[in-house]
Design a protein around this nucleic acid. Sequence first.
DNA 1: ATCCATCGATAGCTTTACTATCCAATTATT
DNA 2: AATAATTGGATAGTAAAGCTATCGATGGAT
Lengths: 240, 240
Amino acid sequence: MDIGKQYYPAMRISQLSAESGVPIPTIKYYLREGLLPQGDQTSATRAEYDQEHLRRLRLIRALLEVGRLPVAAIRQVIAAVDDERIDFHDMLGTAHYALSTPVEPHPEDEDWREARELVDRMIADLGWGVHPLAPTRNELAQTVVTLKRLGMPTSQEDLLPYASAAHDLVRDLDITKIPFDGPRDVAVETLVICEVLYGKAFDVLRRLAQESESTRILDVTPCSDDGASKVTRQGAHRDA
Amino acid sequence: MDIGKQYYPAMRISQLSAESGVPIPTIKYYLREGLLPQGDQTSATRAEYDQEHLRRLRLIRALLEVGRLPVAAIRQVIAAVDDERIDFHDMLGTAHYALSTPVEPHPEDEDWREARELVDRMIADLGWGVHPLAPTRNELAQTVVTLKRLGMPTSQEDLLPYASAAHDLVRDLDITKIPFDGPRDVAVETLVICEVLYGKAFDVLRRLAQESESTRILDVTPCSDDGASKVTRQGAHRDA
DNA sequence: ATCCATCGATAGCTTTACTATCCAATTATT
DNA sequence: AATAATTGGATAGTAAAGCTATCGATGGAT
């Protein structure tokens, strides 16, 4: 038997479901879709799963629910991890690009070309090592175009403070958490978790800060209880 | 006639469609859904639209495509703007909360309670004026729980650098763009644009920085052309 | 007078992420 | 050994979201 797995007690699909809270049909679906590796098949009607599967399952749910990534993107990340022909660096690149929303370029559009040039120039000015064909470039260009169309034209100068804040966070925090010298799957998993979950955390923190600042500017009792009507009165929650 | 609208040339739905690139049936759908206000109905089969409609339409598309907000959330924001009974501050609050993904609390779960306490304590320690019932608190708590479940437990200390970076950006940049003294619709629109589009921009910048840093750490020719195979070989784009 | 766009209503479509049902093959229970 | 329960594998059905298509009546344009 595999020494490396001796600490992982085997379980059946029903236990996997119970531990993770994910219904059995959904687990089967993930197996079909290649998100979750097949269990150790001991007979025609029996397969065993271990802690790895549980962990993977939790990762899938986190990416789906917190990161709101499409199943297809998750599959790509996983495929890159499992494809041993892809080297470490390219694997991380694949993971990176799977996380970006694909944006098709519109080189015929004047605004678009200008935005893309802004992005390329900024990346070059910052000295960032970003692949010239990275889809992320188009994603940012698209955002810049949209801002312009909405009447908030954005220059490199406007974007730079965000860029350096992002760089600082990544350099000092995110990247230090990634075990580049460890096994492939752990590294890429950590990278994805960092990008998606810390990304989410930052996003929420930003919205919290925005609320705090607009409350501060608009006067009012910054955090007193009398404002409780604000939430209940309007039912501002999206669907809950 | 309305003096305030004399500079806005009227157009028919077909022109609105042509200008915005949004198909007519889709515009009708937005009208039905209350995302887009009805045009000026001049007869049973004729209505006139103006630049406001065009602007609103672009905003809707930006929130949908860039911000990936659900239609229901967009409708909530719009409803709050149009409801004159809601005061300025509550309107912004509604907008804020419409942007958050609803998360139902699990007070029975130990992890969840702990995470929520962490969030509350941090907000208090930072002195932020965030509503005690803000759904954003649960959103962050959920993220913290998920991180823990994935084996990356997160303390207040871990989160604080992100929080202060977020606060800095908001205080120095985002919030200065919002015309709090202007008309309701402009203020809330700007707020939403800032949150969603600058949020997106930052997210992309973070991913760019991550790519740059992992490239730097993993050795390799930081940005040379020989890596072009990375993108093409794997077809790393999500679905394009 | 004729044609064409528009309105309003309704129904249909597409994608995504599940969820449910069946059946044969075990495996467990009695 | 008989019977009940569980699993895997296959297939089909479902629900929600976001459009898209069609139709008939109307009314302005030529």
